[in-house]
Amino acid sequence: MFEEINHTADLAIKIVSDNINDLFKEAGYGLFFLMYRKKFKKKIDRHIVNLSSNNYETLLIDFLNELIYLNDSKDFVLTDCDIKLENSYKLKAVAKGFNNGNPPLNSIKAATYHNLKIKKDNLKYSTVITFDI
């Protein structure tokens, strides 16, 4: 689950999920919701994403920035995602969606590392991500 929260200059979302895989997925869906302000269903195209990092926080930002690149260069909109996180902070994902002819309402330059912390409380994972627009 994601919800938009206030940020003076940019955009931010809070994500809460039952597991770390869903946290990454929801972050991806949240990113595209901020861009288009609506949810899509089409699953025509797919892109394979393989990434590795030093921790889950930086891996999450790298994943979101990969999705931003796919949108900027190929007009790709994410609607579904199979994601597998391995120990040693490796990610394998199949990003599913479609190439939208229309540009997003909000252009997001990047997902930032600002105050980024993935928390785990009462078996729930949560984080807040700030996007530069």
């Binding site: 938009e4 929260i5 206030n6 940020h7 003076t8 909000n106």
Partner: peptide
């Protein structure tokens, strides 16, 4: 300089 969030 902004005073209000984009959402607001």
């Amino acid at each position: 300089g902004r005073t209000m969030s984009r959402r607001q």
